[in-house]
Design a protein around this nucleic acid. Structure first.
Lengths: 341, 341
DNA sequence: ATGAAAGCGCTAACAG
DNA sequence: CTGTTAGCGCTTTCAT
């Protein structure tokens, strides 16, 4: 849209082809009501002039942005970026543009919600792994574009489209597995409950852990609930403290593979052998898990993103569509970091 | 831009405030030639009506898209996504939208170059880690938007803005380090030279490796140049073969940390101790490297992205700007996978 | 300091 | 089947 380097417009094509702009538009957009002869001639001119329609003008006229937005926190985290990958690959075959709004600060968070959900900017939006606050729920409801929540929104009303992964069950299964191997002193290392983004997946996995313990008639010790900032290094510290307890756990379930590696490091620091002295289970099954031979809970990261995008397209087609909820299952991947007690 | 749910336009505000649309526009955009009183009144109405300017209309009128694109292959690779992170964080504080075009197939590649470099779509573009082919170089030159190349384009003429990292020197330094530790039989495990994307960074690192070897008066053996698809698993296979040679290398330099981990795995497979039986050096210094205690060559991933975006903004301000080239340095990070011979 | 009017480039309803 | 016309919503001369 540089005005200096003159752009070829539909008018230029029309003049050159000896027709009206309207006809050119029809020809380009494959309307059936244009003579084959004229269409050929027009397309010829289009090629000669190397014409390409101004997409912004097109959008204004059509009233559609042909753009989708995804709001996502910390997209460099492997689990997040894999979901994003699913979204992107689903959109790739469509003419839609994809706007990425990464969130790492509160300001970006506000900006994302107030800018990216507007119909003059996008036709629809995906929110990935970012917990929805009450005020944001209001914004979402007022938003004039369809929104699909991926890996978030289990606590917001069911009138939103959602693709969720069953974190509670995942945490429970992992714990049950540990119990089945004879472990009773089982620790949990996860995010802080009161983290600045209100991330809740770690806590949900912890809830599953509690369920399993209770079902087994075991008591839940606070000392076995290690909370820290998300990441390998804090997890290492938290696990280290836990492992120094008089009655140290014989197994630890981590809220993510990244944190599980921190647990492994803590064990190394203390000269504890994994799995002989300590069993460890992670969560996510990112590539790192395989490298570390980590037993973990696999969740369908890519698929959750792909499905969310698919769902958004369906909603674009039929805005009145009933809210859809997909709850994806997890799967325990047994590798080498757990041994029977 | 839903037409049904009536949108508030500048006209509505104007009518309500008893002024003309032009004045509202001026008021909103902070023009000095509008009476303070009227501005107040207008802003009041804006708030009451919850008016927000239609961004597409604004773009059409202004002739600017306020959008930037980044073309990037395999953005889930940690090294790539970290560069992207640098780009995003630099753009975050600006009003620009960011379009991500991920490339995993030839079709996406073509689409990216023909769609994303058009002035009616974006104001500028960044190309990250994707080697430029000759035909693409032509497209780049014809593009009517400024383009900055990040981690690519060392083989295209110097009239493009570039942010490069010195892969050759990085490869050389790593090799020199290995030589200084007494190693002479040094292997290299990297991408295939004839890979479908023409990725060249692996080969450049290999060139540095060759330089170091030659400078030391050593001959370069083809058997010590292991090529495979990018990734941990192929690298494992390639390294495995190399380590089974009669005269197996005592040290291996990998073209990336990911591949270095494959080398480590190959060593484990063969019951070789690292670093006692085999020294290993990686490249990139992604988080995985620290976890594996891997000696590696650190390159400024985030900074390369940030700098590229910064450069693009500078070019947006001054399109006539002389082509800028930044060559970023690498740094050897000594950890625990190398021992003297 | 403000209003009127033209225009950004495209699409679509309306005639014919 | 094609031309004409009227917008889409905003910005920006050009008057006044």
């Amino acid at each position: 849209m540089k005005r200096d380097k003159k752009t070829v417009t539909i008018r230029d094509v029309a003049r050159e082809a000896g027709v009206s702009p309207g006809t050119v538009s029809r020809a380009i957009n494959g309307s059936p009501l244009v003579n084959e002869k004229t269409r050929q001639r027009i397309m010829q001119v289009v090629r000669e002039l190397n014409y390409t329609p101004n997409i912004v003008a097109r959008r204004l006229s059509l009233g559609k942005t042909q753009t989708l937005a995804v709001i996502v926190p910390f997209f460099t985290r492997p689990s997040v970026s894999e979901r994003l990958n699913g979204v992107i690959s689903q959109i790739a075959s469509t003419p839609y543009d994809l706007l990425i709004h990464n969130i790492q600060t509160p300001a970006q968070r506000d900006a994302g919600f107030s800018n990216m959900l507007r119909a003059d900017r996008v036709d629809g939006a995906l929110i990935v792994s970012l917990p929805i606050r009450e005020s944001e729920e209001v914004q979402l409801r007022q938003a004039d574009v369809p929104v699909v929540l991926i890996d978030t929104g289990d606590d917001v009303p069911d009138d939103f489209h959602k693709v969720l992964v069953d974190d509670v069950t995942g945490g429970r299964r992992a714990t049950e597995y540990l119990l089945s191997q004879g472990h009773e002193r089982i620790g949990f290392v996860g995010d802080r409950v009161d983290n600045p983004f209100d991330f809740v997946s770690s806590y949900n996995r912890y809830r599953g852990y509690c369920q399993a313990l209770e079902a087994a008639g075991l008591t839940i010790h606070d000392a076995y609930y290690g909370q820290g900032e998300h990441g390998r290094v804090p997890a290492r510290k938290v696990a280290s403290n836990m492992l120094k307890l008089a009655e140290a756990p014989t197994a630890i379930l981590a809220a993510s593979d990244t944190q599980a590696v921190g647990v492994l490091e803590a064990a190394w620091d203390l000269d504890l052998d994994v799995p002989d002295d300590l069993s460890v289970v992670g969560y996510d099954d990112i590539e790192l898990a395989e490298v570390m031979d980590l037993t973990t809970v696999r969740q369908p990261l890519f698929e959750s993103g792909r499905l969310g995008a698919e769902l958004l397209f369906a909603t674009l087609e039929d805005p009145q569509k009933e809210p859809v909820h997909r709850l994806l299952a997890t799967e325990l991947v047994v590798r080498g970091t757990v041994s029977p007690l």
